[in-house]
Amino acid sequence: MKNAHDLVAAAKARIREIPLSESESAIHAADVLLDVREPDEYRAGHIAGALNIPRGMLEFKMSGTPELGSRDLNILLYCKGGGRAALAAQTLQEMGYLSVSSITGGFDAWAAAGKPVDKPALPSFE
């Protein structure tokens, strides 16, 4: 019987991970930057330009959104630490997407490195 760690390790062996040191150039080269965390995680802070599609909805959103239907899209994913993004990248490959990768270490590594984080601004009531 496999556990979550086993599944993530197997996925990471089948996908391409982008080292944090190359992540900014990979983001600029990507057609789509996907944040596969939950909406509350995304609202707390995310990488600028990221589209939030939680991992649990990935197959449905990708299949149901014509703009995301091209299998030639260059897709870069991230999650909190890399596990969900690895599983999501493997799923996208199984769906036929040809250029899929994830950021090693995910959002936590990005933020810990002092890279820019977008957070929704609260309205000013003054």
Rank of each mutant, 00 (worst) to 15 (best):
P54D: 14
L73F: 08
G81I: 04
N74W: 10
E59G: 12
G64H: 08
P54G: 09
P66E: 14
P66R: 06
H46D: 09
N52T: 11
L58R: 03
M62F: 15
A89C: 14
L77D: 01
G69K: 06
A86V: 12
L68S: 04
G49P: 04
A50H: 12
L51E: 03
E67I: 12
A88H: 06
R55D: 11
S63V: 10
T65E: 07
C79P: 02
K61W: 15
L51I: 12
A48V: 13
S63W: 15
L76S: 02
E59L: 08
C79V: 12
I75L: 02
A48C: 12
H46N: 07
M57L: 15
R71C: 07
L77K: 00
A48G: 15
D72A: 14
H46V: 13
F60R: 09
N52Q: 11
S63G: 08
K80Y: 01
L68C: 05
G56D: 11
Y78H: 02
K80D: 06
N52L: 08
A88P: 01
T65K: 03
L76A: 05
G81Y: 01
I75T: 02
G82L: 01
A88F: 06
G83E: 02
R55M: 15
A89Q: 05
G69Q: 11
G82C: 04
D72C: 07
G56H: 13
E59W: 10
A89M: 13
G56S: 11
I47T: 12
K61S: 09
L58S: 01
G81D: 03
D72G: 07
L68K: 00
L51G: 09
I47S: 10
I53V: 14
E67V: 11
Y78F: 02
G82V: 06
A88T: 06
K61H: 09
A48Y: 09
A85L: 03
I75D: 00
G82M: 03
M57N: 13
N74M: 06
